[in-house]
Simulated assay, not measured.
Amino acid sequence: MLTGKQKRFLRSKAHNLAPIFQVGKGGVNDPMIKQIGEALEVRELVKISILQNCEDDKREVAEALAKGTKAELVQLIGLMVVLYKPSKNNKRIELPRASRA
C-alpha cells in the first residue's frame, strides 16, 4: 500500500509519460492485462488512457487493471490511469520512505 507522499512522488514522475496502452470499446481483457503486466515489469510506472468509446465506467476499468496486474492504482484523472508495480529484476524507481509518526 502506497502512502500519500509516495503517490505524490509517482504522480510527478508520471506527469511527463505518454500513455502506452488504450482501453477502448472492448474494455479490459486478459491479453491486455498480460501486456500491461509485462510493461510494468520493465517500466514500473505506466500511463493508460481510456477512450471515449469505452462502455465501462472509468473507475471499474482502473480497478480491473490494477487488480489484474497486481499493481497499485496511483491516479485516475479524467480518462488517464496511472499504475505502479515495483519490478522484480529491473528496479528503477526509488520511492520516498514512509515517515514515522
Rank of each mutant, 00 (worst) to 15 (best):
E60Q: 06
Q35K: 14
I50Y: 02
A98F: 12
E72A: 07
L73S: 04
A64K: 02
G26H: 15
Q52S: 06
D56N: 15
E94G: 08
K88W: 14
E41L: 09
A64R: 00
E38K: 15
F21C: 02
H15L: 12
R59G: 12
L10W: 12
E44Y: 10
S49G: 14
R8D: 12
D30P: 07
G26V: 05
L2K: 11
R8G: 04
K25N: 12
F9Y: 11
G4Q: 14
L40S: 05
P86R: 12
G24A: 08
G26A: 09
N89Y: 13
F21I: 07
L73E: 04
L73T: 06
K58A: 01
E55I: 15
M80W: 10
G26C: 07
G37W: 09
I33N: 01
V42E: 08
S12Q: 14
I93T: 09
K58S: 01
V61R: 11
G37H: 03
P31I: 15
L2M: 05
A64G: 00
L10K: 14
G26Q: 06
G24R: 06
R43P: 04
G78K: 11
L83V: 09
N29L: 08
N53Q: 04
N29V: 03
M32H: 15
D56P: 08
I77W: 05
N29A: 10
Y84N: 05
Q35R: 11
K58E: 07
K58M: 12
Q22N: 01
N89I: 03
K13D: 11
E55D: 15
M32A: 08
L65W: 00
K58Q: 02
T3D: 00
R92N: 05
M32Y: 02
R97F: 03
N16Y: 08
A39T: 12
L45W: 07
I20D: 10
V23W: 02
L65N: 00
Q22H: 15
N90E: 13
E72Y: 06
N16S: 09
L51S: 10
R11G: 12
E60C: 12
R11Y: 08
V82S: 15
R43Q: 13
